[in-house]
Structure formats: C-alpha cells, structure tokens
Design a protein around this nucleic acid. Structure first.
Lengths: 220, 220, 220, 220
DNA sequence: AATGAATGAGACTTCATTCAT
DNA sequence: AATGAATGAAGTCTCATTCAT
C-alpha cells in the first residue's frame, strides 16, 4: 500500500483498474481473516478486527462478505481440495513412494493453510459440510474402482471389502496430519504409505510392482 | 468470590452439593445442557435456556457451574473414555470378532451420546484437548507394546513400523463412526475389523489364531 | 411473595415486590422514552439513551421492549383515546359550553402528553394507524347517528350531509390544537364550539337549546 | 469544501448545473427520490438507492444535493403551495361550486404528488415547517380579511369570530383529503363546500349569492 | 464532472454473568 | 440456596458521506 501511494502522488498511477484494486482489498480481507482465525480462533475474531488487520474500514468488510462465516467459506473455497485427503493413484508407479509423496504434499498444504484449527468450525457449516461430503464420496468411489480393478487383475487382497478398504485408505491418509502432530518424523510418510499399501497389496505383489516400476524407470 | 475460590480447586464446582435435591438440580442442568447443545449447538444455546429447560432459575445455573464451558466439561467428563477410540485387545480372542465387537460398542456409545456435534467444540477446550491427547498417547503406547510383543512372537508383520501401525489402528477404529455415516451397514464392523487385522497379522497367522481360539473356546 | 421477602431480611427495605419494582423500571423507561422523544425527536433518540435517562442498563430496555418502536407503541397505548378528537355529545347540555369544555379537555390532554411532535411518527406505524382509524370511524359513526337523530327531531340543518358534517366536526375538534398554536387564546374553545354548533344547529334552534338547558339547570 | 460553501447561500445546491445533461441528472434524482420516498418511506430509502434508481453514481447524488434531506426539500419546494390548503376565494362566484372545485383541485394535486406519506417527514424539517407556517398565516389573513369584508357587507354571520372561522375553513379544506380516504365519494367536494359555506353565509344570503351569480353568468 | 469504493460512527441487540432480594 | 431482574461489554451490521481515480 505504501508503494502504491508513492506512485500516486508523483502522478504516474499504477492505475490498477478498479476491479483489480477491489480484488486486492478482498484478498487482503481473506488473508487477514485466515491469519486471525488461525491465530485467535474463529469465535475470538470479529469482523472489525479482520478489517483493521487488513487495513480497511469495517464497512469495507461488509462490501465483500455478508458476514464472518461467508469470509470463512470464501477462504476455504479454493482449498477444499486440499483439506480433503488426497486421491491416491498408485497405478504405474512405485506405490509406496508415490503414496508417501502424496501424503507429504497433502500434509504440507494442510499445514501451510493452518486450517487444522479451523476444521472443526468448518464442519459446522452445512454448506461446507456438503461440499466436503460430496468430495469424500467422489474420492471414495475412485479409490474403490481402482481397488476393484486391482482385485480383478489379481493384484490386491481378495478377502477385503473394497468399499471399507477405500474408506480406510482415506482415513489413514487424513491421519498423517494427526500422526505428525503426535510424533513428528520425516519417515512417517513412508511408513504410513507402507501401511496403506499393505491394505491394498499382498507383500509379494507389492514387491513385484516396485521392482517392475523401478526397472521401467531404469530403462526409460 | 476470591475467598470462595481459595477453598476450591480450579475446575471444581462452585459448591459441592451434598443434598439430594441439589444433586438432582445439578443432574437436571447437565442433562438439559447436553440435550440443548446437541439440539441447537454450543454457541446457539445460552445459560438462560439451559436453566429454563432444567426448570431452575438462571442464577442457579451459576451455583453449580462456573460458566457455560464448565457445564460442557462436566457433561463429557464421564464420557471421555467413550469418545476415545477403543483400546483394542486382541490377545486370547478371535481377533476379528473381538475387534468388531469393540468397534460396535464404541460406535454405539458415541452415537448415543450424540456427542458428534459437540466434538468440534470439545477440541477447542485446551483442558479437554489435553485429556484427549493424554488418553490417545496412553492408548497408542499400549497398542504399540502389544504390537511389539506380537512381533517378537512372530505373529505380526515384520516390515511395518509399530508406532505408525498403532496410530493407524486407532485412526481406523475412530473412522468406524464416519464410515457408518456415509454407508450404514451392519457388516461394517466386521469388515473394518478384518482390515485392522490385516495391518497386524499376516493372513496365515490370523487364520491360525482364529482357529486356535475357536478350538480353545470349544475345549474350555 | 412480597410479604415473605419482607420477613426475610430485617424488613426495613423499601422492599418493593419484584413485580412492582420491575413495573417501575418499565414505567421509568416509558417516561424516559416519552421525554426524550419529545425533546430530541424520534430518530435522534436511541435505546441506549433512553435506558441511561431512566437510570437502567441498555439491556434492561430490551427486557421490557422489543425495540424503540414498541416503546413508542406502549407510550401511546394508554393514550390512544386522548390523541383522538373527543366524542362530542351535546344532548341535554348547553351545546356550546359543553363542546367548548370538551375541546379544552382534549387540547389539555394532548398538550400534556407533548405528543404533537410524535404524531407524525405515530402515523407511520401501521398498527397505530389502524387503531386510530378504527377509533375515528367509530366516533364518526356515533356523531353521525346523533346528527341523524337531531335532524329527525328538526333540530339540525336539513341540507347538510350528515356524514360529511360528522367528519367536519371531527376535523374542527382536532384543529383546536393547531389553532392554539397559531393564535393562543382562552376564548378559542368557545369560538370554535360556536362554529361547530353552527354546523349542527340553525341559530334559532341553538338559542332555544341553550335557553331550555339553562332553565332546566336552574330548576334542578 | 469550505471555499465552496463561502460562495453559496445555505441551502443552495452544491453547484448550479447549467448544462442540459446536468439538469437532467438533477431531475432524474428528484424524480427518483420522490418515487422511492413515496414507495418505501423516507428512512427506508438511502442515497445509494436513489442514485442507482436515477442511473447515476452514488457520488453524483452529492454533487446536486447537499444531503438526503435537501433532496426532499427540493422535491417539495415547487409544490409547497399545493400541500397547503387552497386559498378559497368566493367573491363573484357561486361560492359552493367554486369552493368545491378548489377542494377538488387541491385534493388532486396532493394525491398526485403522493406526498401524504412524506408529509410527516416534512413537518420535522424546521425550514419547511416555517415555510408552511408562513403560508398558513398568509392564507389565514387573506381569508379573514374577506370574512371581515363580507361581515361589513352583511353577507356573513355576525356572531362568529372571523379569525377562528378562517382557521376552521382552512382546517376543513385540508380535511377533504382525509375524508376522501375514509369515504371516497365524488360528492364529497360539494358537500364539504356546503359546510364551509354554512360557516360563512347564512342560508338566505347564500341562496341569493347563488342566484345572482347564476343569473349574471346567464346574462354574460 | 462522474464514478463507486471506502469510510467509520453509531444504531441495534444479545447474553454471560452478577446481585439484590 | 434460590430466584430472575439487571447489567453492560461486545458484537454485528448499516448507511450517509467522502475521496481517490
């Protein structure tokens, strides 16, 4: 803001189109909201503070957001996919390292957003709840289909229910965040990946998969 | 007030009711609080309503509870162990049916309490959070020890990290509630139990365990 | 309850029973509201001020009144009959002095209430508007009936429409307030009464009425 | 702003628009304001809406009007004479039909403006109040003078106070609007005119006046 | 001149908690 | 102990008006 104003006085306006500047204020509010929600908690943060922290007037807050909740909604809108366990895709890869990497990415995103503390609050919102549920269902379906395919190809366990296995995989994926809180360790990703793989592949199959993928990578 | 508090431990009730009627009022308030919190949500319920619903005066509320939060704390105090994933003990049992039954019990308790809706609120409370964390850690330790023992006895997988496996088991146990919400089914308990067992025992071990236990049960 | 409480403590409290005290607060708020509305105007007065002026907390205001408007409603509720033109009854009286006296009473009430300034505001309220309209219609009906009777008895003009005359009488009655503002004078009441009488009685009839009433009063 | 105001008379427009387009905007705002005030009420209408309805920006509103109130003032400025009871002039006419026609004209104007709903608001404005009062006084004076003249010529009642009669006539004239609301009827104008005439002329005088005027009209 | 985003004072209201009875 | 009226801080949100472009 300081920079901008320097240019204004001199007369060479950066001349950001109105919409863009407005967009910036909106973003400032979003960021300010996210920061404060994480820092002080949802209930402990009020619209006035969010506005002040974003260096705008209270009224401006209400130009862009109906209320505090809508701000929260907007904050997570773009990140819905990141607060949802990753869609694990193990085909054509070394499953363990692939999954481990996915877990790490998911965990990083989540941590970066600092949304852990907001998560409970999010769940209260029916709309958000629905979005999350839909995504969960969608992902569950994809994972299940892959499990079925794998089963048909004789790659996976035959005695486990695909649907429950899919939910389990999702649950385990999500748990990486909690595990890292209790017991932070770089190897958690790999270890959890191994566990997830155990739910999918019998050990001998997994070995072959790793082998073949590492070979193909070698050749390629 | 200062005086009174000197005589009290923090978190204790403003006055320990010794008479029956008083105890009844306290219980009425607890029940009233639980009902309303579940029905309308924590924030949407106020002290006046809780008191009214319990057929006492607003002021009486504060004779039994320091504030609204303490009421919530008291509500869950007795149930902390029930909102925590069960401590799975598979020794000397058919692991699958034993775990399945544990899952069912846990799920039932949880559902009955209707605490799902309060859970997010609970997590905000540092004190409760700590209690939960402690319990989690304690349970994790126990499970891990059993896993280690099992490993030593050659009963369990040797390539999985015991600690992460223990967390995974806990995570899966807790996920039964969510799974039942997405896909209600009586067999979920058994299917999830199978999955948990897969993380512990190689299939051939599990078979033997089941066999021996059913035999031992026959003989006994 | 009031009695009981007097005996509880030494008994020398002003010890107004709860209800009574509450009622007093309510009255204080009503009076405070009336005063401030008249003094500063409706829009310029807010709930906080009304409460402060009545020496109660803001919240107390909202225990007794839903909002500012409801306070206003309550203020005038009891006075609705006083802000409505008087119901003129001239039978068996010296019409002029009777009407003059009625006008004076009405004017005094109105002035005392200081409601002139609030009147415009009152009219905005639909509910109040309806009450006023109903009363107006009721009074109009009564006056008209009397006019009809008088006409039948040959006491009143025969060429004037009773309904319009009734409205005119009401309008003139109400106008005393305005007239007194423009041109304050003790004789206004009598002069306006004369004018109203002119709309009802031909001069010769009026004379006889006055005469006979004054005679009957002498004899009685 | 300070500078600008120095060059302006209080109550004058921030800038006197000299160009056609500007004038049009001003008119659009006036019309927009009038419409919305009537439709939604004074308090319920805000500057933003008025501007939007006139297809100009919010800021433009304040180029033409100091504030919302000034807009209202400007709206009625041209119509002040129309919200004031008509100046009844009965000389050289059939008084009844003349007055009836005046009443109708007044009523029509008033209705057309839709100012009934704004009236209460107008009265709050001191400036407007004064204008109205001045006009009322002026009209009252004129009517009274005519009454005095009539009295001298032996045309009117001798026992009625001219001043009060004048106020009464004004009050009755104004009441046509209310009467029409309660009891809409085309003949109201004539009937009320008759009543007003009764306050001025004794029946026999009125008859003669009507006769002579109709004759004179015939001859002319 | 015109624009419309920005401002911020302040209105209204709720409710956890206290206190007089 | 019990009562419920009273408190008043704190929150949400509006809108007349200003201001940068």
């Amino acid at each position: 803001m300081a920079k901008e104003q320097e240019h204004q006085l001199i007369g060479e306006y950066p001349s950001l189109p109105k919409q863009k500047r407005a967009l910036q204020k909106r973003l400032a509010l979003l960021e300010s909201g996210r920061t404060l929600f994480i820092e002080k908690g949802w209930e402990q943060t009020n619209a006035k503070e969010i506005a002040a922290h974003a260096h705008v007037a209270t009224g401006t807050f209400y130009r862009y957001f109906k209320d505090k909740r809508q701000l929260l909604m907007s904050i997570i809108e773009d990140y819905v996919d990141k607060i949802i366990p990753p869609e694990l895709n193990w085909t054509n890869n070394d499953p363990i390292s692939y999954i481990a990497q996915q877990l790490e990415t998911h965990d990083c995103h989540f941590q970066q957003l600092g949304l852990q503390k907001l998560f409970p609050e999010l769940l209260k919102d029916q709309q958000i709840n629905e979005i999350i549920k839909e995504n969960q269902t969608r992902i569950h379906k994809k994972i299940m289909q892959k499990l079925e395919t794998a089963k048909e190809q004789g790659l996976s366990w035959t005695d486990l229910d695909s649907s429950i296995t899919a939910w389990s995989i999702m649950s385990l994926s999500a748990s990486i965040i909690e595990i890292n809180q209790y017991q932070p360790n770089k190897t958690n990703y790999v270890e959890l990946a191994k566990i997830i793989c155990r739910l999918i592949f019998p050990p001998e199959v997994l070995e072959k998969l790793i082998e073949s993928n590492s070979t193909s990578q070698h050749t390629s």
